[in-house]
Amino acid sequence: MTPDAYRPSPLAQADCEATEDRWTLVFTRDLRHPPEKVWGALTEPGQLAAWAPYTADRDLSEAGGATLTMIDDEKPQDMAAEVVRAEPPTLLEYTVGTDLLRWELTATGAGTRLTLRHTVENHDWIPKVAAGWHLCLDVAEKLLEGHPIPPIRGAAAVDFGWSELNDQYARKFGIPNTGLPEHLKGEAGAS
């Protein structure tokens, strides 16, 4: 896929909440698929590899330890994860490093309302995380529709509108745009 063949969807319903010394992105997206189908995309390793910024060493439908391999640059990085809650097909919550991700799936007449609550330590990351999940969920939606496109992740995401999305979400949240994460800056110039 080329950058000319893909355009990001409009900004998602998103908010930023402060909780003690941490920040939570609340990212909501309406999908045209039932919760069971969306659940599979969130938990099955083969489907995750097709859209997420990481792969999983096991199905995430059950509580317990897991290894998520981040694929956001040329050096994949294994990260310890812990599925703390798995209530198919409505709630998935796990830690990755110091981050906490909570996926809530609510059936709607037209499909599923997906709400991601991604908690990070530094509020500067909220627009970056929103831009990244925005692109990933665009890819997930294509996968669910049966028209998959290649994953958009890491430094290559810059070629597919990540910088513009990061800027738009930064303005929306009133958070300064600090640009591309340091670990990807060298890779972006090479893409």
Rank of each mutant, 00 (worst) to 15 (best):
T2K: 06
D4F: 13
A5K: 06
P8L: 00
A12H: 03
D15N: 08
C16E: 14
E17L: 15
A18W: 07
T19V: 15
D21W: 11
D21L: 15
W23R: 11
T28C: 04
R29Y: 03
A41N: 14
E44R: 10
E44T: 09
P45C: 15
G46W: 09
W51R: 13
P53W: 02
Y54E: 14
A56L: 04
A56M: 02
R58W: 10
D59V: 12
E62Q: 12
G64L: 08
G64D: 05
A66E: 01
L68I: 08
M70D: 07
I71E: 12
D72M: 09
D73V: 09
D78L: 07
E82P: 07
R85A: 10
P88D: 14
P88W: 06
P89K: 09
L92A: 15
T95N: 09
V96H: 13
V96I: 12
V96N: 12
G97D: 04
L100W: 12
L100S: 15
L105Q: 04
L105H: 06
L105E: 01
T106Q: 12
A107E: 03
G109M: 10
T112S: 11
L116E: 10
V120P: 04
N122T: 06
D124M: 04
W125G: 03
I126L: 05
V129M: 07
V129Q: 03
V129P: 00
A131R: 00
G132H: 03
L135E: 00
C136Q: 08
E141P: 05
K142A: 11
L143K: 07
L144F: 11
H147P: 05
H147N: 12
I149N: 04
I149P: 01
P151T: 02
P151H: 06
R153S: 10
R153K: 14
R153E: 06
G154A: 08
A156T: 02
A157P: 04
D159M: 08
D159S: 14
D159K: 10
F160M: 05
L165I: 02
D167L: 05
D167I: 00
Y169S: 07
A170M: 03
K172V: 06
I175G: 01
I175R: 07
N177Q: 08
T178L: 10
T178G: 04
P181S: 09
K185Q: 11
A188P: 08
